[in-house]
Design a protein around this nucleic acid. Structure first.
Lengths: 192, 192
DNA sequence: TCGATATCTTGTCAATGGAAAGATATGGTG
DNA sequence: CACCATATCTTTCCATTGACAAGATATCGA
């Protein structure tokens, strides 16, 4: 745990944290393994042992992100039971964990076929569609329609989140993003 | 125009085309200026003269993208007059020009303060919101509500497009993306 | 014709990702 | 406790890249 030791203690965690910080600052494109190693106070080759290569590190980060997102959605569904709040929670996760979120949807940056990653991604997808299926009939959520309703809600929340993260929304600085997202999400049919 | 000449003829265009091709293949992160130079048959330093640096090239590509998107939206609004089709056109542009579209929303990759770029981006934004303002009153498009309605439509189209591009939609291969987008966009209030 | 300029090349450098080989610490087994 | 297999980390090295500087060649205007 202490510094200046040959063994770092938890270098893997330190590198993931440093990566999230660096990506939040300058985006995934500017990420440098050697810079992460410097931040953690280890040699430039140390990250290789834990993640294999750069895509390997981003695979771990994306996996962590999908896991966290699944947990946030499941938690929201359990506490609020609201379809609308599920979308709000999606946007809230994206904006409060922007590094994880940005990497998650860039499969060209990581090993998209990694088993742990695909499993986490599926759990997140299930958490999302479980909330859609909660909708009572008559709100368009019956049978095969669930897929389309879920896709619409997912697209809306995802689009708002990515536009906000890219700085494309003029009102970005004025209002908390999840508040603004709530107003937008309300415009979806069978929301509530 | 012919090959093997000292002057390429239109190297700037050739580099932009090669960049779009390379990005469509492997994503913006894997883009290499030297690879573009090789594809165009020029020396590794030739691109510098036309674009200054790597962000400069991506600035030009993003500017081209915003200009093309503005044209596509304006054209759609003029011919169809449909709010729904405006969203469909947005998705169609994104999926048929994925390299341009992907770069456009990654301001960390280019010079976001470039005058030509900001002008093109504003034109695209105006084309988008002009279509929203076409909506007759009683469909929620009156006054200040236009902003929110436009934001919802934009988010929905943008989210669908980015999810499709990232390969996150299982039905990606089955159906043309703009067709699938139409069904999703219909779920927005005051659409049509 | 001739100089100014645009375009492109060659040469060079620091930084990066990755591989190879070695050093050091940790943990299990007797 | 002794000992070794293994995990963790370091050092060294190489090819590639983006960027810069200086020079070569082509185009254009006076």
């Amino acid at each position: 745990m202490a510094k200046e030791r040959y063994h770092h203690g938890d270098l893997r965690r330190a590198l993931l944290d440093a990566a999230a910080e660096a990506i939040a600052e300058s985006g995934p494109a500017a990420l440098s393994l050697r810079d992460l190693a410097r931040r953690a106070g280890v040699s430039h080759a140390a990250p290789t042992h834990h993640f294999g290569d750069k895509p390997g590190l981003l695979t771990a980060l994306a996996t962590e992100g999908f896991t966290q997102l699944a947990a946030a959605l499941t938690e929201t569904r359990a506490t609020t039971g609201s379809f609308l709040e599920l979308g709000v929670a999606y946007v809230r996760y994206a904006t409060t964990h922007r590094a994880h979120f940005e990497v998650m949807w860039r499969p060209d940056l990581y090993h998209a076929d990694d088993p742990a990653l695909t499993a986490a991604r599926e759990r997140a997808g299930e958490a999302l569609y479980a909330g859609v299926a909660d909708l009572p009939d008559g709100q368009g959520a019956a049978g095969a329609d669930v897929r389309e309703a879920g896709l619409a809600a997912w697209s809306l929340a995802h689009g708002f989140a990515t536009l906000w993260l890219s700085g494309s929304l003029p009102q970005s600085s004025e209002e908390p993003p999840d508040e603004a997202a709530r107003a937008v999400l309300r415009r979806l049919n069978h929301g509530g």
